[in-house]
Design a protein around this nucleic acid. Structure first.
Lengths: 108, 108
DNA sequence: GCCATTGGTTAGTCTTGACTTACGGTTAGA
DNA sequence: TCTAACCGTAAGTCAAGACTAACCAATGGC
């Protein structure tokens, strides 16, 4: 199972988010990703390493090139984390509202 | 509108995530949040400032205490960002599959 | 076989930001 | 009013990590 916390750490950096977003539409080679960005190609390579370790990105070798694309498992992990958080917060809200509504009543 | 990128930056730090998660169940005071954590109360205060600026947290003054709770807008912004990303990736997958299916056919 | 392309890794620099200590302001209680 | 509790801010320290330049390995075309 892929770690959502790890994914959040990875996406906590603007440059890394930009790299990630560049793979949204299609797979790209490293050089292709770096092109047009204001950081060097090795920097992009390092970011990809982190994104890969976080389960946000997958690689496929094609000759001398490496084609990177989004890993859906990372996105799903994030969504799960978010949904779980949302769920618990909702339950807490309801309970708080319940306590508010019964406030002042004679217990039982 | 609340910025999803800002929220991602904020949640990119483990300690800050821990602070955020402590508000999942109910609102808490600053001292209450810091209690049991391995960082000082001012550190927590600074994290709360960042979380608040990111739209992930709201404050309510109650006497000398400040009660912090989750801001649903921040979560919604994150969810929107994630869903948008997911959507675009899905479209790209379909288009890629389509191109794959028609590969080799005589054009028109 | 040779050279160009592609990209991962290493070493080293430097900025960002997480943290603590100290301080000041505000509120509640005696 | 005096004191204690609560909390935000400022100043300063320090480590994490983002980045570049240089190097090396692998692949493909000629």
């Amino acid at each position: 199972m892929i770690n959502a916390e790890r994914a959040m750490d990875a996406l906590g950096d603007p440059t890394r988010r930009l790299v990630f977003k560049r793979l949204r539409n299609r797979t790209r080679s490293v050089g292709e990703i770096a092109e047009g960005m204001d950081v060097s190609r090795p920097a992009v390579s390092q970011h990809l390493k982190v994104l890969k370790a976080a389960g946000l990105v997958v690689v496929r070798a094609e000759g001398a090139r490496r084609l990177y694309g989004v890993d859906t498992r990372g996105i799903e992990a994030l969504r799960g984390w978010l949904d779980g958080f949302w769920e618990e917060a909702l339950v807490a809200f309801k309970q708080a509202a319940e306590r508010e509504a019964t406030k002042g009543r004679k217990p039982r």
